[in-house]
């Protein structure tokens, strides 16, 4: 298990969405708002369904820092403030890349992230500007 995990760590991280999401590209700014749970709908009006891995998971940490350019503690605080002030909700959490893929593939409007090696045709990869 360990070696393949180590390989996955260095692999490219991709933003993935459910095929129903009509989104060709996404800006980093928009992605930040989406994962901070501050953007509730896609431009086509569909509800956004954010899926993340736990705080402290290396993939979550890499995605947050390298792709979004923010820190995990900032996202966590943003979610807590929304949840406990009645201004928003928390994201869905999954603990493995396989469950991430499964959740994104089966949930309309879903968005998440995954290492390139896990991607299959049931999800859509969205390039980030």
């Amino acid at each position: 298990m360990l070696p393949s995990h180590a390989v996955a760590l260095s692999e490219e991280l991709l933003l993935i969405v459910h095929p129903s999401v009509e989104h060709q590209r996404i800006t980093r700014n928009t992605a930040r708002a989406v994962f901070a749970m501050r953007q509730r709908t896609w431009p086509d009006g569909q509800a956004i369904h954010v899926v993340v891995m736990p705080n402290g998971h290396p993939t979550h940490e890499r995605f947050t820092k390298e792709i979004l350019g923010v820190y995990p503690h900032q996202l966590q605080l943003s979610w807590d403030r929304l949840v406990f002030s009645g201004t928003g909700q928390a994201p869905d959490q999954v603990s493995t890349p396989r469950s991430m893929l499964e959740r994104i593939a089966t949930t309309p409007g879903a968005v998440g992230y995954i290492e390139r090696g896990y991607v299959d045709e049931r999800v859509q990869v969205v390039p980030m500007d």
Binding site: R40, T41, G45, Q46, A47, V83, F84, G86, G88, Q89
Partner: peptide, 11 residues
């Protein structure tokens, strides 16, 4: 607390 989105624009 409890929250729900019964419609995409409603919380």
């Amino acid at each position: 607390n409890a929250s729900i989105r019964p419609h995409r624009d409603v919380l």
